[in-house]
Simulated scan of single mutants.
Amino acid sequence: MTVALVTGATGFTGSHLVRRLLAASYTVHVVVRPASDLEPLASVRDQLVVHVHDGSTAHLTAILQAAAPAVVFHLAALVLTGHTPATLVPLLESNLVFATQLVEAMVSAGVSQLINTGSYWQHYEGQDYNPVNLYAATKQAFEAILQYYLEAAELKAITLVLFDSYGPADPRPKLFNLLAQAARTGEVLALTPGEQLLDLVHVEDVAEAFLCAHRHLRTLELHAHERYAVTSGRHLTLKEVVAIYERESGLRLLVRWGGRAYREREVMIPWSGGRALPGWQPQIRLEEGIGKLSEH
């Protein structure tokens, strides 16, 4: 069986990827922090090899050497829509220091295949690079660091640029959780004027994209780095998404449109300049995905 190592495995997307890898008969190792909550992996915990990283490069190298994975899926990140002086160091440690330690450990352990995770927030106003926030800047900065390793070491990589994901049991305070809470309580939900376009991809489709990326990565030569957009290919305004949610869920919402201002550097039109991942396309339409939400 193919051995995979996953970072960010306790996150929403990461935990879905872990289950998809297991279903595809991968042997799965995960790297977690001492304080990580393993509850999202509870249903498959006995099928995993869990490594608790002490924060050092030497320990991460030892983990990579012991696991000897064919591929590393790097999803770990601290995602912040806006930073503060207090979150500056954690943001850099999570998104730059740890990520660089990971690639250094891969090179030392002789692991050559990496699936990295990017964000459409790196492409404000559709530009090749214009970060929406400091989080997006750290994602871009790591890609620059990764390029050094790709040039200097026996390594190849694919970066998957992710858009907004959703799905059942999402612990994040994202749109559909806010809508469900408003429907339960009957409270009036203050939203922006609702004209921004959203690109929503079901988490099961996102997980499948990572497996598809690994199949493609196997065919690439060493030192290659390819970038693909994991997009639904369908842009809907926030108002349209809320209307679809009401129709598919059967719930009625009290929304005060314009009750909240657009945030600074709000993405009004998602980036559409990415390449399509060979062999992958989304299978779950938003209407179907919202229906699945109501089943949980």
Rank of each mutant, 00 (worst) to 15 (best):
135 Y>D: 00
135 Y>I: 01
137 A>I: 09
139 K>Q: 11
141 A>N: 02
141 A>F: 07
142 F>W: 12
143 E>W: 01
143 E>A: 11
144 A>M: 13
145 I>Y: 13
145 I>S: 12
148 Y>M: 07
149 Y>F: 15
150 L>P: 02
150 L>I: 10
151 E>T: 11
151 E>C: 08
154 E>W: 06
154 E>L: 13
155 L>F: 09
158 I>T: 01
162 L>M: 10
163 F>H: 13
163 F>K: 00
164 D>T: 13
164 D>C: 02
166 Y>V: 08
168 P>V: 13
171 P>N: 09
171 P>S: 12
173 P>L: 08
174 K>Q: 14
175 L>K: 02
176 F>L: 06
177 N>R: 12
179 L>E: 08
182 A>D: 01
183 A>C: 07
183 A>W: 07
184 R>K: 15
186 G>S: 11
187 E>D: 05
188 V>Q: 12
188 V>M: 12
188 V>P: 00
189 L>E: 04
190 A>S: 12
191 L>E: 02
191 L>K: 03
192 T>L: 05
192 T>R: 01
193 P>W: 07
194 G>P: 10
195 E>T: 11
196 Q>P: 05
196 Q>Y: 09
198 L>D: 08
198 L>A: 13
199 D>C: 01
199 D>M: 02
200 L>C: 06
201 V>T: 12
201 V>Q: 10
201 V>L: 15
202 H>R: 11
202 H>G: 14
203 V>R: 06
203 V>G: 06
203 V>M: 07
204 E>H: 09
206 V>C: 06
206 V>N: 03
207 A>I: 08
209 A>P: 05
210 F>M: 05
211 L>R: 07
211 L>H: 02
212 C>L: 06
215 R>H: 15
215 R>N: 11
217 L>N: 04
221 E>C: 03
222 L>A: 14
222 L>N: 10
223 H>M: 02
229 A>Y: 11
230 V>P: 01
233 G>K: 02
234 R>P: 00
234 R>N: 09
236 L>A: 14
236 L>N: 08
237 T>E: 01
238 L>W: 04
239 K>W: 03
239 K>E: 11
239 K>F: 07
240 E>P: 03
240 E>D: 14
240 E>V: 04
240 E>K: 02
242 V>L: 04
243 A>G: 02
243 A>D: 08
243 A>R: 12
244 I>L: 15
244 I>T: 14
244 I>R: 14
